[in-house]
C-alpha cells in the first residue's frame, strides 16, 4: 500500500494549494464586487431617489450574491443548500430571523430575496466598500433604538422582507447568544410574522473571532432551512424567550444531520 501513499499525498497537497488560491481569490472577488457596486451606487442614489432606488439597490445586491454563490459552487469547494428559501421572495412582508454562525449568512439569505432590507452597523455603513450600496438599498443603520424600530416597520408595511439576526452579533463558538428583543418589537409594530431560518455550516467559516485569512476546511456545506413561522407577538418578552428556545432546540447537536 506504500506505493499509493505518495500520489495520495501529492493529490492532497495540490488540493490544499488549490483551496488556498480559490479561497483568497474569492475573498478578493467579493471585496471587488462590493466596492464596484458601492461606487456605482453613489450616483444612483441621486438619480434614483426613494423607493425606486431602494428596489434597484436591493435587487442588484441579491443578484450579485446569487452569482457569487454560483461561482463558489462552480469552484467545487462549496456546496449550497438553499432550496427551502426559494419560495420566500413571493411571501411578504416577513421578518426573516436567522441564527448567525458566519459572515456569509447575509449572502445566503439575501441571495434568495430580491427585496430584502438589512440592518447594518453604522461603522460598516460608513465604509467605502459598503457605504454607497447600503445607502441606495435603504439599509437601516443600527443607531438609535426607536428610529430603527420605526424605519424597519415602515419597510415591512411597504411589503419588504426584513433580515434580522436576533442574537445581535455572530454566534460565538457555536453557542447561540441571548436574543435581543428589537425584532419582536418590529414584528409587533408592523404586524408582520417572523419567519425563522436555520443556518448550518459544516465547518467554522467566517465566524466570530476567527481571522478572515484562516482558510476553512473544504468542502464547505452551507445550508439554510426554513423553520417555523411565528405570528406577531402581543407581549414581547415571552415571545422573545419562545423564539430563543425554539432556535436552541432546532440547532441542538444531533439535530444538525436530520434527514430532510
Amino acid at each position: 500500500m506504500t506505493g499509493e501513499e505518495r500520489p495520495a499525498g501529492l493529490v492532497s497537497a495540490l488540493r490544499r494549494a488549490y483551496e488556498y488560491v480559490v479561497y483568497y481569490g474569492f475573498l478578493l472577488v467579493f471585496a471587488l464586487m462590493c466596492l464596484g457596486w458601492s461606487l456605482l451606487s453613489l450616483p444612483l442614489v441621486l438619480l434614483l431617489p426613494g423607493r425606486m432606488g431602494r428596489r434597484v439597490g436591493r435587487w442588484v445586491i441579491s443578484f450579485g450574491f446569487r452569482t457569487y454563490l454560483n461561482l463558489l459552487e462552480w469552484s467545487g469547494i462549496v456546496k449550497c443548500d438553499l432550496a427551502e428559501l426559494d419560495g420566500l421572495a413571493e411571501q411578504g412582508p416577513l421578518v426573516i430571523a436567522a441564527n448567525h454562525p458566519s459572515l456569509i449568512d447575509v449572502v445566503l439569505i439575501v441571495s434568495r430575496l430580491p427585496d430584502a432590507v438589512c440592518i447594518i452597523k453604522a461603522s460598516l455603513a460608513d465604509q467605502f466598500i459598503f457605504g454607497g450600496s447600503a445607502r441606495l438599498a435603504g439599509y437601516i443603520r443600527n443607531i438609535s433604538g426607536s428610529k430603527l424600530i420605526l424605519d424597519a416597520s415602515r419597510e415591512l408595511q411597504a411589503g419588504s422582507h426584513l433580515l434580522v439576526f436576533p442574537e445581535g452579533t455572530r454566534t460565538v463558538g457555536g453557542t447561540l447568544q441571548p436574543f435581543k428583543g428589537g425584532f419582536a418589537l418590529i414584528s409587533k409594530k408592523a404586524q408582520a410574522p417572523v419567519q425563522t431560518v436555520l443556518i448550518e455550516i459544516n465547518h467554522p467559516f467566517l465566524s466570530k473571532g476567527r481571522p478572515l485569512f484562516d482558510k476553512p476546511e473544504f468542502p464547505l456545506v452551507l445550508r439554510a432551512r426554513l423553520g417555523e413561522r411565528f405570528m406577531p407577538p402581543a407581549q414581547l418578552r415571552p415571545y422573545i424567550a419562545k423564539l430563543e428556545h425554539y432556535f436552541r432546540d432546532e440547532l441542538a447537536p444531533g439535530q444538525m444531520e436530520r434527514p430532510s
Binding site: 433604538g145 428583543g181 428589537g182 418589537l185 409594530k189 414581547l236
Partner: peptide, 9 residues
C-alpha cells in the same frame, strides 16, 4: 430595556 423601547413608541 425592550419594554422601555416599546414605551417610547
Amino acid at each position: 430595556s425592550i419594554d422601555m423601547l416599546e414605551i417610547s413608541l
